[in-house]
Design a protein around this nucleic acid. Sequence first.
DNA 1: TTTTTTTGCGAAATCAATTGCAATAAAAGC
DNA 2: GCTTTTATTGCAATTGATTTCGCAAAAAAA
Lengths: 123, 123
Amino acid sequence: MRRNTTQRMAIEEVFRQNDRPLGVDEVLAYGRKLVESLNQATVYRNLKLLVDDGRLKRVTHPSLGTMYERTGKGHHHHFYCRACNHAYELPGCALNEDEIAPDGFVVEDHDVFLFGICPSCVR
Amino acid sequence: MRRNTTQRMAIEEVFRQNDRPLGVDEVLAYGRKLVESLNQATVYRNLKLLVDDGRLKRVTHPSLGTMYERTGKGHHHHFYCRACNHAYELPGCALNEDEIAPDGFVVEDHDVFLFGICPSCVR
DNA sequence: TTTTTTTGCGAAATCAATTGCAATAAAAGC
DNA sequence: GCTTTTATTGCAATTGATTTCGCAAAAAAA
Ligand SMILES: [Mn+2]
Ligand SMILES: [Mn+2]
Ligand SMILES: [Zn+2]
Ligand SMILES: [Zn+2]
């Protein structure tokens, strides 16, 4: 039976406090502010458990690699600032799956990544 | 000075014959049909040279990883069939960068990946 | 208390990509 | 054509980054 460890609760808290895709290193760094003994292997183990439990999902950034974010937010897209490397949530979706692919292709899902400069880096 | 080796010409020919994003393994497999001695290290070395020369560009697939395709085709998107794992070219772009991100975000580029079943796998 | 999951730690496994080196071959010069 | 130069190749070994694992100690829940 799954136990509610301070480490696992801290990792979930990290995603509540930073509601955007986070890399493993970010989870570890933010998590250590809550539980300073937190170890990298524990982060990996819990990220996997939380994905299995459907509480997190994986997001793959073209150059930053694997990231994780909370589930339950509905379909949305992401913006990656190439200055600060932060990922941002972009609520909603204006993409029409039916009209973007030729006839015969069955579109089941899509990912949209925007790249550029975020408001806090633009000044 | 750069030499026109049979290996490098074969790799370029692979991309001409298969005008879609190809993974390193695909380039090696198709390339060996043209030059059977073709080696993986040679593929890696030449993919890098061809990217440097602006003849190929990298495309990162969320789960298949790094792929390469020819440059000069203009901005477009990709469809990945989850049955045969083939990548397809989708000419054109119906995405409006200005209206998809909130004010303050400077959008410089975007990637769109569609996932589903391609016409030859659908039957 | 007792049981058993979970952790921290270092070592180890993975996988993609790179490198050293002797052999090969492109292309320049004769 | 033939020789010389040196970029390039094939091969195996190696790197580097990420992820996993073994195990004793710690701690959650019964
Ligand atoms: Mn998100
Ligand atoms: Mn393409
Ligand atoms: Zn969408
Ligand atoms: Zn587009």
